[in-house]
């Protein structure tokens, strides 16, 4: 069973930068990753009370 201590997790920053997905590790067009400022409007809640398969933004 997933640990519920992570429920309500807030994710900050650009989720598409510098990640490997399904074995593919794409590199952004530039030779270095872009700076992603952390602003309040970047922050999102993760709802783990549903089926746990999808993030739900908070209201």
């Amino acid at each position: 069973m997933p640990d519920e201590k992570y429920s309500g997790l807030v994710v900050v920053g650009d989720e598409t930068a510098g990640v490997c997905v399904d074995g593919v590790c794409a590199v952004p067009g530039a030779s270095t990753a872009e700076r992603h400022d952390l602003r309040a409007d970047d922050e999102r809640d993760v709802d783990l009370d549903s089926d746990g398969s999808e993030r739900q933004p908070s209201a």
Binding site: Y6, G13, V19, D22, A33, L48
Partner: peptide
């Protein structure tokens, strides 16, 4: 399974103090 439950589709994924998530190899200043 925990990763999938949290909606993590790619790595690296960082969780700070069990409440703040950061996705990807962000620049060090981030």
């Amino acid at each position: 399974a925990q990763a999938h439950a949290m909606g993590i589709r790619g790595v690296p994924f960082y969780v700070f103090d069990e409440r703040v998530g950061v996705s990807g190899a962000q620049p060090s200043d981030v």
